[in-house]
Design a protein around this nucleic acid. Structure first.
Length: 271
DNA sequence: ACGAAGCCCTGCAAGC
DNA sequence: TGCTTGCAGGGCTTCG
């Protein structure tokens, strides 16, 4: 479910309810996620105040006086703030109770996500240490993609989705950004020109920021959210439209697999 | 070093 | 109707 925009919007949505609040306890119903949820998370967090929250890649970092809780939503996860007497459903795996009568609920049917506790600088954590720059940072530019890609024969789409090059570009937005840039997704990364990478950088930023904007307006109130409205209503040009007419030139969109991910493109508009 | 493939897991839709 | 198959927005790990 979550691409970067959803992570950003989720964080924006839950923080106002829990920032500066103390945790009373944590209930783990099923800690069997991508990695095990620390069994003693309740002991670790008991009576600790949430100082801040931020996003790095698709991880959410919640800072406490003695460390960070690091949450990833995987493929199907979501995080909601609810009244503290809300009954759990099937895949509501972890509840974090705060002292203002709310709970932060982690649900994840496929359990590809994770909740980890990190002491010290989270940027040095194994999972964050080797990540590339954020898409909204100055480090993400055409020069970076151009120089990193020289000699690479993998497809430009897979290159774009590799977290070492830039983080946060998932399958939907990789498809969309390539379409908007007029770049064929299966073209070798090493054969993309500098100006084309310029266009790609611009469109990645464009497509992610407009999704965040729209997510922010559709998901203003995270308290009591049913968790199902978390999909951006943004118009998608290619993703999920294989076989349908291109919205720019009406030729039929092709659907192929690159790196085991569905990839949709227009062979007329994307060269 | 690089790139391809496997794997973790459940739910759902399509096809037979 | 009911079963089987394949696919889903992620990403770490292993293998060649």
């Amino acid at each position: 479910m979550p691409e970067l925009p959803e992570v950003v919007v989720t964080l924006q949505g839950v923080l106002p309810y829990i920032l500066g609040k103390k945790i009373s306890h944590v209930t783990i119903r099923n800690g069997n996620l991508r990695w095990p949820v620390p069994k003693d998370l309740s002991v670790i967090l008991n009576n600790r105040k949430l100082e801040s929250g931020r996003q790095r890649s698709k991880y959410m970092l919640f800072r406490f006086p003695h460390g960070h809780m690091m949450i990833h939503l995987g493929m199907s996860g979501n995080l909601r703030v609810l009244p503290d007497d809300s009954l759990p459903e099937k895949h509501d795996h972890v509840d974090i109770f705060f002292d203002n009568k709310v709970l932060l609920r982690y649900s994840d049917p496929r359990r590809f996500g994770s909740i980890l506790w990190v002491e010290g600088n989270p940027e040095e954590h194994k999972l964050l240490r080797n990540l590339g720059p954020e898409p909204f940072s100055a480090e993400f530019d055409a020069s970076r993609l151009y120089s990193l890609s020289r000699g690479k024969v993998i497809s430009v789409k897979q290159f774009l989705m590799d977290n070492k090059n830039v983080v946060g570009v998932g399958n939907i937005y990789a498809n969309e950004a390539l379409f908007l840039s007029g770049i064929n997704p299966k073209k070798a990364a090493g054969r993309i020109s500098f100006p084309a990478y310029g266009a790609l950088v611009f469109n990645v930023i464009e497509v992610l920021s407009s999704a965040i904007e729209q997510g922010g307006t559709t998901l203003q109130d995270f308290s009591g959210n049913d968790g199902k409205s978390g999909y951006f209503k943004q118009e998608l040009y290619v993703y999920g439209r294989g076989g349908k007419p291109c919205l720019k030139c009406t030729s039929l969109l092709r659907e192929i697999r690159l790196g085991q991910r569905s990839s949709v493109y227009c062979s007329t508009c994307q060269k």
